[in-house]
Design a protein around this nucleic acid. Structure first.
Lengths: 189, 189
DNA sequence: ATGGTCATGTCGCCTTGTGACATCACCGTA
DNA sequence: TACGGTGATGTCACAAGGCGACATGACCAT
C-alpha cells in the first residue's frame, strides 16, 4: 500500500474549488484546503505559489493552444488571434458552461481573485503577442491585434456565461463580437 | 502647536514611493513606511486598504476626469473614449514623464503591484463603460468602445515611457495609436 | 469646565507564505 | 538481506500583512 494517496495536486484543486464555493474565498484558509485534501498546509505551498493559484491551473494549457494556433494561422494578425480563440472555445470550453459559470462566480466574489485573473490574462496576452512578433509584426501591431482579440474573447465570454445566455456556440459568439468591434472602430462619428 | 503633523496621507504616500525605489516593494514593510512618515503601522492601514494602495492614489481623479469627458463629448463611442484619454494625457500627464517612468519601474518590478494596476485599470474601464451605457449604448458596444480606448491608451503610454521615447506629446501618440488600431481591425487579411 | 469628536497609538490576534529539518516508503545495488 | 539514496510529505518556527478593540489627548462647541 502506497504511503500517499495519488494526485495530491488534483485533490487540492478540487478541495479548494469546493471550499471556495461553500464558504467563499476569504473565509477559506489554506489549512482548510489542505485538511480536506488530507494533506498539510506546507504541502499546499509546495504545489501552488499561493492560495489563488489553486483556482488557476488550466492556464498553461490554454496558452499553449493559443500560441500554437496563432503561429500556424496565416491571415491578418487580428483575424489570426480571433481564429485562435475560436479554436480554444471549441476545444476547451465546449460542454463546460456550468463549470465555467461556477468558476466565474467564485472569481467575481473576490477582489484578490479578480486581480489574479487579470494577471493571468495579461501574461497570456504577452505570450500571444510574442508569437505575433515572431512572425515579423511590429511591437505595436502585435500588441493591438492581440489585445483586440483578447478583448473580443472576454466580451464574448461574459455574454456566454450570462444568466440570460442560451448557452449556444461560444465560437459563434466570438465571431459576432469580432464583427461588432470592426464596425465600431471603422465607423467615424 | 498641533499634536500631529499635517497631511498624514501625503507623507505616507511619499515615504512609500521613496522606500519602494530604494529597497524595492517586497523589501519594504508597512512598518518601515509608517516609521519614515513618523506614524504608526495601524495608521497606515486606516488610510490605505493595503500596502499596494499607497502607490495608487491618483486613480480617482483620473477616473473623474475621464468619465466627465466621455459624458460631455458627442461623437462616436470609440472616438469619445479616445478623446477623453487625450484630455487626460494633457491635463494629468504633461510634464510628468519622469515621475511616470519612476512609478512604472516600481510597478514592473513587483507582480503584486502589476496585479493591482491591472485591477485599477479594470475598474476605471468599468466606470467609463457605465458612462457610455448611460448615454444609451448597448452593453457590448460600450464595453468594446471602452476597452479599445483603454488599450490604445496603454499602448501609447508604453511607447511614451519607453527609454527610446523622445518624450514628445503623449496626446499625439494616443491619436497615432488609435489610427493604427483602426487600420488593423478594418483591413481583412 | 465639560463633554464629544477624531486622528493617532498600543496591544493582541489570525492568516499568509517560507525556511529548516525530520520522517519514511520506495528503489537500486551490494 | 541490508544499506544508502531519493522524493514527497509533515513539523516547527517565524516574519509580515492585515484587522478589531481599546486608550490617549488635542481640538471644538456649548
Amino acid at each position: 500500500m502506497a504511503r500517499w494517496q495519488p494526485d495530491a495536486r488534483g485533490r487540492l484543486e478540487a478541495a479548494a474549488f469546493e471550499l471556495f464555493r461553500e464558504r467563499g474565498f476569504e473565509q477559506t484558509t489554506v489549512a482548510d484546503i489542505a485538511a480536506r485534501a488530507g494533506l498539510d498546509k506546507r504541502t499546499f505551498y509546495r504545489l501552488f505559489g499561493d492560495k489563488r493559484e489553486a483556482l488557476f491551473s488550466g492556464g498553461e494549457q490554454l496558452e499553449g493552444v493559443l500560441v500554437k494556433a496563432v503561429a500556424e494561422t496565416d491571415v491578418g494578425p487580428f483575424e489570426a488571434v480571433v481564429a485562435a480563440f475560436r479554436q480554444v472555445a471549441e476545444q476547451i470550453f465546449t460542454d463546460r458552461l456550468e463549470l465555467v459559470r461556477m468558476r466565474q462566480s467564485i472569481i467575481v466574489s473576490s477582489p484578490e481573485l479578480q486581480e489574479r485573473e487579470l494577471r493571468k490574462t495579461s501574461s497570456l496576452t504577452a505570450a500571444v503577442a510574442a508569437a505575433l512578433r515572431a512572425k515579423g509584426l511590429s511591437e505595436t501591431t502585435a500588441a493591438l491585434a492581440t489585445e483586440s482579440g483578447v478583448m473580443v474573447f472576454r466580451v464574448a465570454l461574459a455574454r456566454w456565461v450570462a444568466p440570460e445566455s442560451d448557452g449556444g456556440s461560444f465560437a459563434d459568439l466570438i465571431a459576432e463580437v469580432a464583427t461588432e468591434l470592426r464596425t465600431l472602430t471603422t465607423a467615424p462619428g
